[in-house]
Amino acid sequence: MMQLVLTVTAVVLSLAAAGAIIRIAIGPSLLDRVLAADVLLAIFGAALCIDMAVNRHLNNLMLLVALSIIGFVGSVTVARFVADRRESVRES
């Protein structure tokens, strides 16, 4: 059963990562990209969790916490220094 779960979650998370990467690529604004990068980090964290659960170990837990720190620091920093460079407000 765990093998089936692993396959299903791998497919689902791959699709989710593809969606987040598409949003990073098409933007249209910097904040959209930051948000999508945050979601991509959350998807990586989910993949680490599933690896730990299926193989029954805790090796990735510190990596998971570090991942959430990186997401936090990254989005706060970018949000602090973001500026509006668009010509028209209606773009997004």
């Binding site: 779960v5 299903v8 979650t9 689902v12 998370l13 699709l15 989710a16 990562a17 593809a18 969606g19 987040a20 949003r23 948000l35 999508a36 979601v39 959350a42 998807i43 989910a46 969790c49 599933i50 659960a53």
Partner: peptide, 15 residues
């Protein structure tokens, strides 16, 4: 696990 992975997919679709 499957529902947690579907949350990620939902976030991507929402994005």
């Amino acid at each position: 696990m499957v529902v947690g992975a579907l949350m990620s997919l939902g976030a991507a679709i929402g994005l």
